[in-house]
Design a protein around this nucleic acid. Structure first.
Lengths: 415, 415
DNA sequence: GCTCTTTTTTTCGAGCCTCGAAAAAACACT
DNA sequence: AGTGTTTTTTCGAGGCTCGAAAAAAAGAGC
């Protein structure tokens, strides 16, 4: 049962609101913040004065030299980069990438590493993650104590509480509580996020115009993933990260999927599926472990070149994605879509069949109004999403804490 | 951008919280309310004193005679039935049903009527609805001015703003703004809801134990509908009522659906589809307009009797529902399901194939843990859901109004 | 029947918070 | 230098919730 609003919640929430407004707008004046939040000037003045005193916000110089307006010039408020830092850890197939990001969102330091995730032991995988985080934390240039939050992202399924990876295609091991492991190791709050959800978060920050309240990010990679934002909120399953678009059933008793089941969308549209169809290997053929990006680009080139099995493979991928989206749209109504990942670069080959399929579905009623955007490179998106997720946490939980947490961390940053 | 919390919002929200607590608990004492809302005893005391003064709540006698506890006995707070009334209008195939319900949720008066919705003109359909509402409002036993809200429910698609029916299988006409029409006619705020969503709302009130945060209500009737509650919230599409489970694609290029497309779940599991398969009419056969409940029961009896085409028809229905649910569960994770409607009485025939299909899907991982409940009679559920929806509106918007609305209606009820 | 104990509810002052109005600040324009 | 404009701060008023204490309303014990 939802809980009443206490008197102290009021300040807490409005503090969070002000911080959020600054993070969104960059350098808003107090007047602007008052306008967007609907709070009075006096309130904003009081809160921002607090926040500046605590070192969370800073006044920035009049910014635009070209402020030819009369009257007292606005003073921009900005996030104090030194107020805190966060760390992002992105774990993908054979690749581990870490970055430290300051409170204003700038990358301070980063490190990347190839590893053989598919064959590593559970402990080795965990060990690599812990080690790379430790190296970044021990970087002499960095004030360790200022790292307030770690966000991990991984391909696969995570739990709703954002504590653990439940299953991932990049490793045979399951149920690894990465968040707890890192928290125990470093004493820094951590969360474990799904990669596609982070893509969606990042898109929302990158282009709030297009990706505002309702949109879909689909990862077209070895597997098919989805991040979904509905009514301005990241959509997750009730127990897991959910949104397993790639494992909706396209064709009952159909092609063999990497997950061991049959007829999933992914079994037609994942890289391995496109590759399998392009090679005319038959739908029962066991999915290959990996197809290199170069191979996929060659496949796309061949498909563009002539109307052979490669083109047909992309057509099948488009059809599966189209019917899948159609079913999804039946549930949530159509929304803008961002196609991310290697195969997004081949979206020209996918789109015709996709649109044709979607037009056969209930969600396709306004199929022409459904717009697609492509972004071939998923990694930067995932990293950005993690960073924003971690920073938002700091904004809300550390700099606008509930009563119980109020004493500790904030004080430290004041000093 | 989400808006800051004003000082006056505080009282408003906490008032709403107290009313909600009373509506949920029935006759809670002030102490109980303090416990569930997390607010202090003083606050609850102040708010409930206000609410009693305004005639919204009433103190009820010590209730349980068997209160053998020491100490000052608790005073139960209950909703004052006379504080307001609401009206529900349920429009289904060939049937119109209206009820007036007091603030405590008891039915005061009702009226039902058969009509030929499929062949009626647009104006006649609207006219019937307006007329039946007028008759109830003019009932001499009823204080008209006390009806504070009308909730309509209809089979089909409504818009998110709950103003209009966009499309419905019960009439060839589309885009009828029932909510606006009734508001203009009677000056009473009205909303237009989807029937299956109201079923879900009702289930939540009926059995909050089982149907709490995440569950699915599926209507197995001539068509297939769904109401979905996720994270305690009714799930709707971004533009429409959404949740068109029946029109997810089960089989690309498959059986002809009532909606004109092919391969929808409904085209295998709707009454007309079961009937069509039982008669071995072929998947291209145009769906019949209606199958009587008696015919469906006869079909089910025949299927139970011998392993003929009837049983196979139910098997196909189960398979379509299973794969559909599997795809849904891939997105939202498994949740308890309530099967409602005539064919829910034949769920024994549907369940085996359904479970088998669901086990083939990603969502079926824990297929044994997915539990089904059946309820053959949808109408009472829909009515109940409408009533609760309307009453909740009164609770929130009228008895705990935002600043702008505060003057009017509340005062009236004070007097 | 009276007092003690227990539990619920109300009362009261303190402490915050937001708000509106007015004042102060900071600049452009003339 | 003075005036006008816009932003920001200040200040007192009014509300709200909270904790502590008081009041109320029983049952328990003698």
């Amino acid at each position: 049962m939802s809980v009443g609003i206490r008197h102290d919640d009021l300040r807490r929430r409005n503090r969070a609101m002000v911080i959020a407004a600054v993070r969104r707008a960059g350098q808003p004046s107090r007047t602007e913040i008052a306008a967007t939040t609907g709070l009075s000037h006096s309130t904003i003045s009081a809160i921002s004065s607090d926040l500046i005193g605590e070192g969370i916000l800073a006044e920035s110089k009049p910014s635009e030299a070209g402020s030819l307006k009369r009257g007292r010039p606005q003073v921009g408020l900005s996030l104090n980069p030194e107020a805190a830092a966060v760390m992002t850890v992105v774990l993908s197939l054979n690749f581990l990438s870490v970055a430290v990001i300051d409170y204003a969102g700038q990358v301070i330091s980063e490190e990347q590493r190839r590893l053989d995730t598919l064959t590593m032991s559970r402990d080795a995988l965990i060990g690599e993650c812990v080690a790379i985080v430790r190296r970044r934390l021990e970087d002499p240039d960095l004030d360790v104590r200022s790292v307030a939050r770690i966000a991990l992202a991984i391909q696969g399924i995570t739990d709703t509480r954002a504590r653990a990876m439940l299953w991932s295609p990049i490793t045979p091991h399951t149920d690894i509580a990465f968040a707890d492991i890192l928290e125990d190791e470093f004493g820094i709050p951590a969360t474990m996020e799904n990669d596609c959800n982070m893509m969606a978060v990042a898109l929302r920050w990158r282009d709030p115009q297009r990706y505002r309240d309702d949109f879909i990010a689909i990862l077209l990679s070895h597997g098919i993933g989805m991040g979904l934002v509905l009514k301005g909120q990241l959509f997750t399953g009730t127990h897991s990260s959910g949104g397993e678009f790639g494992h909706m059933i396209h064709q009952p008793r159909g092609a063999l999927c990497r997950c061991g089941r049959r007829g999933c969308v992914e079994a037609y549209a994942g890289n391995y599926a496109i590759w399998r169809n392009a090679r005319q290997l038959g739908e029962d053929t066991k999915p290959v472990a990996d197809v290199s990006d170069a191979d996929m680009r060659a496949l796309a080139a061949a498909a563009r070149d002539s109307d052979g099995p490669e083109r047909e493979a992309y057509r099948k991928a488009g059809e599966a994605l189209g019917y899948g989206l159609g079913s999804l749209f039946a549930l949530i109504d159509p929304a803008p879509v961002a196609m991310v990942g290697v195969s997004a670069a081949a979206f020209d080959l996918i789109e015709p069949a996709l649109r044709e399929a979607i037009a056969q579905t209930a969600g396709g009623q306004h199929s022409e109004s459904i717009s697609f955007d492509t972004e071939p490179n998923e990694l930067p998106l995932i990293r950005e999403g993690c960073a924003m997720r971690a920073l938002t946490f700091v904004d809300q939980e550390i700099f606008a804490p509930g009563a119980q947490a109020k004493s500790g961390l904030v004080r430290k940053n004041v000093a």
